[in-house]
Amino acid sequence: MFINVLLVGIGGFFGAISRYWISGKFNKKGDLKFPYGTLIVNLVGAFLLGLITASSLSASWQVLLGTGFMGAFTTFSTFKLENIQMHLKRQRNVLIAYLAASYIGGIILAFLGMMISVNY
């Protein structure tokens, strides 16, 4: 129990910093007002968590890399906030594209990650 708290904390620390770093790199590129950083983080994270979940890694590794790192690396709240900001700016098409890319992409990539992991 205590070791799990430690593992989730360590994973959360590095996951959040990695997300912040990637978001900073990609979210403000040029005049394109599209949150590529959040999208990349969420899609890559969904794929990697698929790999981790279906792998034969021990429970402790799963807690560190899955619950801790990938859980904190990806984010749902920022994604939703960006959806609302697009809605308030009346960027309807951008909003729909962002929603579709995130949900469809995330589920397909998680599936691919799990498939690769199982068959590897």
């Binding site: 994270g45 968590l49 984010t75 749902f76 599936f111």
Partner: peptide
Amino acid sequence: GTGIIGSFTTFSTFSVETV
């Protein structure tokens, strides 16, 4: 915002749970 709430919520777990 980015630290606590961003890490509290998760998109990867949501995707894997859906699959």
